[in-house]
Simulated scan of single mutants.
Amino acid sequence: MTFATTDLCDDYAAMLDDGTLAVLPPVYRSFGQKLRFCGPATTVQVFEDNALVRSTLETPGHGHVLVIDGGGSLRRALVGGQLGVLAQHNGWAGIVVDGCIRDCDEINVCEIGVRALATHPRKSSKTGAGQVDVRVQVSGVDVSPGDWIYADADGILVSRQELD
């Protein structure tokens, strides 16, 4: 799918006004080979623990975007190189992390798109704490499972419906 987030904002200005389309704050860094990606959201809510992130990425992605509410933590990484490869092999369109990643050189060669707040060398815990497929909040924006995520060089959009 070819799209530009700038055009989507222009074309769907009424949705921006009524809140059914939102723009994430411009605080995310881009990683991976796909600079532009979109798809329906699958959500995970965790805090400094990536066991649920891994188990979710182990399932077929079917072109979805994994949206990780990591609470904005800058103390540990929630996605690393192995999970980037797993996401690529299992058909995920991309990953948005409200938190950190690590192994960015490994992620940068993967055929997926990744957006994250920063990189951090420390790995996460692995207790399995958190929730999957729940409404999350990412940088102040609500994201529900099935919402559409559109990401390119200009930003990340969250839409309650697929946009043409």
Rank of each mutant, 00 (worst) to 15 (best):
Q131F: 07
R76C: 07
Q45H: 10
F47P: 02
P25F: 05
Y150F: 14
G113C: 10
L74H: 12
D142E: 15
L35K: 15
N108K: 12
A14Y: 10
I101A: 13
V138C: 06
D98P: 11
E106R: 14
R36Y: 15
W92M: 02
D10E: 07
E106I: 12
G70I: 08
C100A: 15
W92Q: 01
V44S: 00
G39V: 03
V65R: 04
G84C: 10
S30M: 14
F37W: 10
L83Y: 12
D98R: 07
R135I: 02
V132N: 00
P121K: 04
G113M: 09
C38R: 14
T43F: 04
H64W: 05
D133F: 05
N90L: 05
H120C: 13
L157K: 11
R115Q: 07
F3W: 09
I156P: 10
R135D: 05
Q161L: 09
H62D: 14
L57H: 02
R76E: 00
V53P: 03
S144N: 07
I101M: 11
K126L: 11
P25T: 07
R115G: 00
I107S: 09
L24T: 05
V109M: 13
D98G: 06
L163Y: 11
L83D: 09
D17N: 12
L16N: 01
R36P: 09
G113T: 10
V23I: 14
F37S: 01
I107Y: 13
I101P: 03
E106Y: 13
L78D: 03
G63K: 01
N108S: 13
T59E: 12
W148E: 08
A118R: 14
G91W: 04
D7A: 09
L117C: 11
